Amino acid sequence: MSPSSSQLRMPRLDGAGVDEHLRLAALQSYDILDTPREEAFDRIVRLIRNVFDVPIAFISMIAADRQWAKACIGLPDPNLDRKVTFCRMVLASGQPVVIEDLSQAEDWKNSPFVTGPAHMRFYAGVPLRTMDGFVLGTLCAIDKKPRSFTEANLDVLTDLAAIVMHELELRRTAEVDVLTKVLTRRAFTVQARQVLALMDRQDRFSSVIMLDIDRFKAVNDTHGHATGDLVLSEVARICQTQLRSTDLVGRLGGEEFVVLLPGTGAKDAVRIAEKIRKAIAAAAIDVGSTSLAVTSSFGIATVDAKTSELNALLGLADAGLYMAKSRGRDRVVALQAEMQAERQTEG
């Protein structure tokens, strides 16, 4: 029999307890929050939608104060307040939760998700559990009408949750991105911090380049994901041919890449980014019977007195990348250099 909300007991594993601190540390170790969409996870939510014929399906990660969807269908906002989500029942109990009619569940009948325009009526969620037993988030199916959910249905949803966890484990342990053959996000982060520490001891500059393929969604939508994968692989290959063996190249996720240039100042970083940009724009990427031309946008950050930690560098490079997109794409923006030039002009 599927559990109802009245049958649930909610142990205090959230809040300020020790268990919640350990759970959040486990979640952080997967480096998954706020990462770009990935086809492996998008495929799973499409399966949920098609297998169960539901309009809403998602893979969520539950942080200290919010629930964030790594992949979702039917949710307009990937970020939700943790306190108001149905998934906190799964987190609290550590068990699958099925509510066949939310409008009849005492704890949820007045929820804005039930009474408001979302008109949610059915909820099924299973935990995403690590090998150490920590619940990172949930895998969910939601319908806008009440429905039954058999034990066999729940078994399928549980099996899909196991596939999600397998993908997360592969993602965490992999050093090299299978598709593009560059470093994974996690491996890049670990190695980049080591390199930056070494450069700091030698009192040398380093720079970060962040790049994003322009209008990549249109490539996938028009030509399919297989073609999109070819474009990603080719862009990664072009980047590596323009760099030194000591430079680090990583895929942050989706169509976004990052490069660490040890011992390289801002001027040379711009020169290298321009070289990569031109090489990508000039390439005719063979996708079977035709070829595609793509462009990329770049943001640059360089170690200085105020910006030396990796996350700060990535944030500044990302801001430059955003600026490059807003200025028309297919360009390089080094915000630090622009800000310094503005100060000199004002002075």
Score class of each variant (00 low, 15 high):
V45Q: 05
D53G: 09
I48L: 08
M10E: 10
M10H: 15
E20C: 03
V51R: 10
F41S: 14
D34R: 12
R23I: 02
P11R: 08
L27P: 01
D42L: 12
P36Q: 08
V45M: 06
R43S: 15
N50G: 08
P11W: 04
P36S: 09
D19N: 08
L13T: 13
S29M: 01
Q28H: 05
A16F: 08
Q28K: 07
G17S: 12
L13W: 06
L22W: 04
Y30G: 03
Y30R: 02
V18P: 02
R9H: 14
R37Q: 14
L27D: 00
F41N: 13
L33P: 00
L13R: 13
A16H: 08
R23W: 02
E39W: 06
G17Q: 06
R9I: 14
I44Y: 04
E20P: 01
D34K: 10
M10D: 06
A16S: 09
F52P: 11
H21V: 15
R9W: 07
L22E: 13
I44M: 07
V18H: 05
L27S: 01
H21M: 12
I44C: 04
A40R: 15
T35P: 05
A16N: 09
R12S: 12
I48G: 06
L47D: 01
R46C: 12
A26Y: 02
E20A: 05
A26G: 03
G17F: 01
E20R: 09
S6E: 14
